[in-house]
Nucleic acid binder design. Structure first.
Length: 427
RNA sequence: GUGGGCGUAGCUCAGUUGGUUAGAGCGCCAGGUUGUGGCCCUGGAGGUCGCCGGUUCAAAUCCGGUCGCUCACCCCA
C-alpha cells in the first residue's frame, strides 16, 4: 500500500494502458462523428480566471468550482465546463470567421464535490457547438451529432433516448396555460427540473409555496407532464401563444425524423437543465433503463456570448461526459476487449546474433512496424513466452544455423507455421 | 456539506466465541540444462490486517476517532 501522502486525490482517476485504451475508444468515436458532420476541433486552457464562471454560469456551478488563489494572487479555477471558454475564444475571433461556426472539443473538466457513481471531480466531456446560426436546423444537427456519437459506440434506440423540451414552450404553457405568475416562473422552472425525483405530495406543496400556485393551477401544471407528444400538448392548450412557441420544437422533431433518428427522440417537458444560460430547445440523453445519470445534456444558449463580452451571437451545443457513458457501455458489454499487439518479436539464439537482431528490428521500425525483443540473453522458450505475452503476430528467429545460410525463421504465432526467408525480404 | 455501509497481498476474497511466525486463487518473478509461445510442475517476492488511540495477559477480530471507498441526499458538467 502506497503511503497516503502519495495517494491519488479523491475523485481523480489513473489511466493505466487498459483504461486509457477504453478512453481512447470513446475519443475516437467522438472525433470520427464530429468530423463526419464537418466540425473542427479546438481547445483552451484547463485553468481559467474565476470570474469567467462566477459571473455568468448561474449560482449552481459556482459552489462546486475547483478554485484557488495562484502564486500571483489571481483568483483562478479549473474549468468546470467548456462553454464559457468557448464563448471567450469566439468573442475574440468570431467576427472574422465564416458562419456557422461548427466546433468541438474534448476537454478535461473539474468540479470540487463529493464523488459518487457517475460523478467524479474530473471527467472528459465531448463538447459540440454550432455558433452563429439561429435556425432550428442547427439545433437538430447538434442533437443528431450526440445521438450518432452514441450509435458509433454501439448504442441504439433500444438503449438510449433523447428527452427534449423548449424553454419558450414551457414558459408559454406555464404563463398562459397554467397561469403561473411572473415572479413564480423561476421557482416553477427549478421545481419542474426535479419533479420526477420527488413524491407527488412534496411536489404539490413546493409548487404552492415556492411558485405561488393555487391547487387548481398545481393540478394543471402536473397534468402537463402526463401529455405525450407535441400534438397532445397543443390539443390540451389551444392558446395562440402555445401554438406559436411549439412551432420550433415541431420543426426540430421533423428534422430528426427526416434523418431517421425519430426513434431516439421524445418530448418531455420536465427537461429544463440547471444552467441559467439556456434560452430555447434543451435536451438530455438517458439510458432507457433509467439506471444511470444523464449521459449528455445541451441546448440553445443565444445570449451567452454577449454576456461574456462578445458580439451577440446565437449558439447551440451539448456536453457528453465519459464517466456515465463508460458505465453504460461496460454494462452493455460494448467496451472493446483490451489486447496488446506487436507486429514482430525478434528471438535471438546466442549473443553473437545480437547486432544482426538489433539491425533488423530497427530497419523494421523505420518501415513503420512495431517490433520488440528481449533485453537480456534468455532461453528461447522464455523469449517465445514474452512474444506471446506481448501479442506478437510474428516471431523472427535469428540463430547460428540460419545466419550461416543468410536467412531467418519467420513464425506466424496464430497458425504456428514457419518459413525461412532472407531478412531483406521483411518489411 | 449531511446521513448509511464498507476498509486483510497488485486483484478477488478466507480468516472459526479476541489466543502461537496472517492464508488461498489469479497475477508477478525465477527455475523445469541458450532452438520454439499458449498448458503443466516447482520455488520465490509481496501485507506494520487503511491510519491513530483505547479496552485486554493477548486485537485483523471489541470500542472511539481519523482518512479512504461506496450508496443516498444536496446539486448537476
Amino acid at each position: 500500500m502506497a503511503s497516503s501522502d502519495f495517494r491519488r486525490l479523491p475523485g481523480f482517476r489513473d489511466f493505466p494502458p487498459e483504461e486509457l485504451a477504453f478512453r481512447a475508444h470513446l475519443f475516437r468515436a467522438w472525433r470520427a462523428v464530429a468530423r463526419r458532420y464537418g466540425f473542427l476541433e479546438y481547445d483552451g486552457p484547463p485553468l481559467e480566471p474565476l470570474e469567467l464562471y462566477t459571473e455568468k454560469s448561474g449560482d449552481e456551478i459556482v459552489g462546486q468550482l475547483y478554485n484557488f488563489t495562484d502564486k500571483g494572487d489571481r483568483q483562478v479555477s479549473l474549468r468546470p465546463e467548456m462553454t464559457p471558454s468557448l464563448a471567450r475564444i469566439l468573442g475574440e475571433h468570431a467576427r472574422s470567421m465564416p458562419k456557422p461556426i461548427r466546433w468541438f472539443s474534448i476537454p478535461q473538466l473539474f468540479r470540487y464535490e463529493r464523488q459518487q457513481r457517475g460523478r467524479l471531480r474530473e471527467h472528459f466531456q465531448w463538447n459540440v457547438d454550432i455558433v452563429g446560426e439561429d435556425d432550428v436546423s442547427a439545433d437538430a444537427e447538434v442533437l443528431a451529432v450526440a445521438i450518432d456519437g452514441l450509435r458509433e459506440l454501439g448504442l441504439g434506440a433500444e438503449d438510449v433516448r433523447a428527452r427534449v423540451s423548449d424553454r419558450r414552450l414551457l414558459t408559454a404553457l406555464l404563463r398562459d396555460g397554467v397561469g403561473v405568475p411572473e415572479d413564480g416562473m423561476d421557482a416553477a422552472f427549478a421545481l419542474i427540473d426535479k419533479v420526477e425525483r420527488m413524491p407527488e405530495e412534496v411536489a404539490r406543496e413546493k409548487l404552492a409555496a415556492d411558485a405561488g400556485l393555487d391547487p387548481a393551477q398545481v393540478d394543471a401544471l402536473l397534468k402537463l407532464f402526463e401529455l405525450e407528444g407535441l400534438d397532445d400538448i397543443r390539443a390540451a392548450h389551444p392558446e395562440a401563444s402555445v401554438a406559436e412557441a411549439a412551432a420550433p420544437l415541431d420543426a426540430y422533431l421533423g428534422h430528426l425524423e427526416a434523418m431517421g433518428l425519430g426513434d431516439f427522440v421524445e418530448v418531455d417537458l420536465t427537461i429544463v437543465r440547471g444552467l441559467a444560460y439556456y434560452t430555447g430547445i434543451v435536451f438530455e440523453l438517458f439510458d432507457r433503463q433509467g439506471e444511470l445519470r444523464a449521459i449528455c445534456g445541451g441546448g440553445r444558449y443565444d445570449r451567452l456570448l454577449e454576456l461574456v463580452g462578445g458580439d451577440p451571437m446565437p449558439a447551440v451545443g451539448f456536453g457528453m461526459g465519459d464517466v456515465v457513458l463508460g458505465e453504460l457501455l461496460r454494462e452493455r458489454a460494448l467496451a472493446p476487449d483490451y489486447e496488446r499487439t506487436l507486429d514482430y518479436y525478434v528471438v535471438v539464439i546466442g549473443e553473437e546474433q545480437g547486432p544482426a537482431a538489433r539491425g533488423l528490428a530497427h530497419r523494421l521500425r523505420d518501415a513503420g512496424h512495431s517490433v520488440a525483443y528481449e533485453f537480456r540473453d534468455r532461453s528461447v522458450g522464455k523469449q517465445f513466452k514474452s512474444a506471446g505475452t506481448e501479442g506478437a503476430r510474428s516471431v523472427i528467429v535469428l540463430g547460428p544455423e540460419e545466419a550461416a545460410k543468410g536467412v531467418v525463421v519467420l513464425r506466424d504465432m496464430a497458425s504456428g507455421e514457419e518459413e525461412r526467408v532472407p531478412p531483406e525480404s521483411l518489411g
